[in-house]
Design a protein around this nucleic acid. Structure first.
Lengths: 345, 345
DNA sequence: TTGTAAGCGTTATCAT
DNA sequence: ATGATAACGCTTACAA
């Protein structure tokens, strides 16, 4: 920047002003400085900026699972609002390891990050306090810690389960099942509770619980295979899967080992939407989590705290999920002359 | 750090030495300083470190596609070797947008990143030169620019296609098809060329090309549906899919609309492994890209250039893919008494 | 409106 | 082995 000043024949301060407060500089000088910058190929030094300013223009996002589109959507949402604020979002993969999460939290703290977004591994907030105590605002995402001195943005999992079950009830299903576990995981427990609430509210509808120790595709496949063995009368006519990969596996397990048709014989709906799983066979209905909106909301809360740390008061934002009905519950859109899917014979 | 020095009753320089060169400090003082650090809850300021040192200890990875496990594997591999070197890896999502890629490249440059890893969007290297000219080492990943002043790490796509086709030939398939496009995409063209090479080398084996404008699941589904319409004699007995999601769609399209059995009637193998797609139905054979190894290799090249910028000479590393035979080509492992899969009637 | 100069918290180079 | 001290390149008063 010194070189630029010399080259443009102005002082260091003026160059800084051109960069940060151009309105306070004579147009003529602005032009001169700008052309010097271009000519010299000058690039600002953020280390120096951060040191002088006391914080960087970077927000760090410590993420649990990069391969899940839900989280990537959050990153997109957050990036969008940060970009408007002329800040950058960088990601760190905690890879579901608590110690890695702490490492990155510390790293962003040392980097003087403007703020930190955190999807806590298994709800663990360790390391967050350290970041806060060093002046780094933190927003908890996809997790509602109920009790904490940070803002948080999460989704209403009870509502997810409720919407899913209600949808099945609305299309006339009576014998529902909720598939997925473990129930010790709050998100799962909440969804189950929501489903139960919807069922209890309805007349003559039952809810069966089918557990699993994870909610990935393989567990779904196993459940699907098990269901395929059942005699038809004991089969549920509507299933709520705790997660979409589980639903995907379940669907495939059932289709490959039975003649059960979706949604005619069985309607299937998932909670949570990892889009990568849906481009196939029978598009699965889902209660979609508002990933992008969550990202936006968290970035906004973060910006608020960054800009006015004093008058800022923490908030817990809970966003509502949205029902997306697809073929697995409402069947094919009636247009065109395509053959039915999932009807092998 | 000044506070620590005062608190421990030593000089600033000594604190710095305890942190960076403890071997040159008397054990007694080390202990004293360390306990002061703990007591004061001191956290280093990386902005200051980077400013003084001329570079940070952070490597930036500008990634095209976060939701693909292939790239996330690279991040894991790179992270592993960087961690040993006491450096950090942070990720930026270019989201397949060239302008975003450039933005992040500039950002990491300004941040004085120790180095940059780049999976170029559509092979575009714009912005890289700028980073280099400002002293930031860059390693190109998953792309072989043949001509450039950077190290690069890529996979041998021709070999991918070759291995896939050879595997089908080895298990006795004669009428092969290669599915996927567009051929203007180098990775696809190379895989096709490799497949062709294997076919040409074999006796009495033919290769059909089935194009598509993308290699995602929906295109696979369409191809699968089309194939289901064919009369059985004109059907290939072995298919190489240009990418795994394409293969997944293809498999599902075929299973849902025909009685074709895998691998009995048709053997299916994919190039490229996005693991998220494989936990289902018929596990699909694939020619796996060595994501983790690529990440490790790129980080190593980067470290080399970071540590000795002068005597460093650029290298192009090309890693070999690996055949992973699964059920879609070699059938079920013969153990246990499980029913056959994919045999609806 | 523009220039001057004092930090920001380290690293690294000197003496000691 | 330790203590001073000069950069590092910017931001931000404050002075002109």
């Amino acid at each position: 920047m010194n070189d630029v000043a010399t080259h443009a024949g102005v002082s260091l301060g003026t160059v800084s002003n051109v960069l940060n407060r151009p309105s306070q500089v004579r147009p003529e000088l602005i032009a001169r400085v700008r052309s010097s910058i271009a000519e010299l190929g000058f690039s600002r030094n953020n280390a120096a900026r951060s040191l002088a300013a006391g914080h960087s223009r970077t927000v760090g996002f410590v993420m649990v699972d990069l391969t899940n589109s839900y989280f990537v959507d959050m990153a997109r949402g957050a990036e969008e609002v940060l970009r408007e604020a002329e800040m950058f979002l960088v990601l760190a993969n905690s890879d579901i390891k608590e110690s890695t999460q702490i490492d990155y939290l510390d790293h962003f703290t040392q980097e003087q990050a403007a703020g930190i977004l955190l999807t806590p591994v298994g709800g663990h907030l360790d390391g967050m306090e350290h970041a806060r105590s060093h002046g780094r605002p933190v927003v908890i995402v996809d997790n509602d810690p109920h009790q904490t001195d940070s803002c948080s943005v999460s989704t209403d999992n009870v509502q997810s389960g409720f919407l899913a079950a209600q949808h099945l009830i609305d299309i006339g299903r009576k014998r529902l099942a909720f598939a997925g576990g473990p129930r010790s995981y709050p998100a799962i427990a909440d969804r189950l509770a929501g489903a139960r609430a919807a069922v209890d509210k309805a007349e003559g509808v039952t809810l069966e619980y089918i557990g699993s120790d994870e909610v990935q595709a393989p567990q779904g496949l196993v459940i699907g295979h098990d269901l395929a063995e059942r005699d038809r009368r004991s089969l549920p006519d509507g299933i709520i899967a705790a997660a979409d990969l589980l639903a995907l596996g379940l669907l495939q397990g059932l289709i490959s080992r039975s003649n059960i048709r979706f949604p005619d014989d069985l309607a299937l709906i998932a909670c949570d939407d990892n889009r990568s799983a849906y481009d196939s066979l029978v598009p699965i209905s889902t209660v979609e989590l508002p990933g992008v909106e969550m990202g936006r909301a968290s970035a906004q809360l973060l910006l608020e705290e960054i800009r006015s740390p004093d008058q800022h008061t923490h908030r817990r934002v809970i966003l509502e999920p949205r029902l997306v009905a697809r073929e697995s519950t409402i069947g094919r859109p009636r247009m065109g002359a395509e053959r039915d899917v999932a009807r092998p014979a």
